Deep mutational scan, measured.
Amino acid sequence: RGITCLDHENEKVNMYCVSDDQLICALCKLVGRHRDHQVASLNDR
């Protein structure tokens, strides 16, 4: 089922925000508060 995003409840987390040490979803990176932050794919970890 996967872990859902805290900010976007219908989205699954699939990225890690290095700047905030937090799991995020694609919407967080595209339009959310993490858009200018350094992120890594969970597949890279």
Rank of each mutant, 00 (worst) to 15 (best):
Y16N: 05
A40V: 07
Q22Y: 04
R33M: 10
R33A: 13
S41G: 11
A40E: 13
G2A: 07
D21I: 00
L23W: 10
A40L: 05
K29W: 12
Q22N: 04
H8D: 03
E9H: 09
K12C: 03
D7S: 06
K12G: 08
K12V: 09
N43T: 12
N43C: 08
L27N: 15
D20T: 01
V18D: 13
A26Y: 09
L27K: 15
L23Q: 14
E9W: 05
M15W: 14
H8Q: 02
I3S: 09
H37R: 02
S41K: 08
D36L: 08
K12L: 10
E9N: 13
E9I: 07
N43S: 11
G32Q: 02
A40C: 09
Q22K: 13
R1N: 11
N43H: 11
A26E: 12
N14A: 11
H34F: 06
H8G: 01
D44L: 03
D36C: 04
V31G: 14
D36G: 08
L6Y: 13
V39C: 11
A26N: 15
C17Y: 01
I3N: 15
L6H: 13
G32R: 01
V13S: 09
I24V: 13
E11S: 05
Y16P: 09
D21Y: 01
V13W: 01
H8S: 01
H34C: 03
T4I: 12
R45A: 15
C5L: 00
D44C: 02
L23T: 10
Y16V: 12
Y16I: 04
L23S: 11
D36W: 04
S19K: 10
K29Q: 11
L6Q: 15
L27W: 07
C5S: 02
L23N: 15
V39E: 07
R33T: 11
Q38M: 05
D44A: 07
D20C: 06
E11C: 10
K29Y: 09
I24D: 08
L42C: 15
G32Y: 01
R35F: 01
D7I: 11
G32A: 02
L30F: 11
C25D: 00
L27A: 15
S19Q: 14
G2S: 09
C25A: 00
C25V: 00
E11A: 06
Q22R: 14
I24Q: 11
V31M: 08
H34R: 02
D36Q: 05
K29E: 10
L30W: 09
L27H: 10
A26Q: 11
N14S: 13
G2T: 10
V18K: 13
G32H: 06
D21C: 07
M15K: 06
Y16M: 04
L27M: 11
R33N: 08
V39Y: 03
V39S: 13
S19N: 09
H37W: 02
R45G: 15
Y16A: 13
N14H: 14
R45F: 15
N10M: 06
S19L: 09
K12M: 11
D20F: 00
T4G: 05
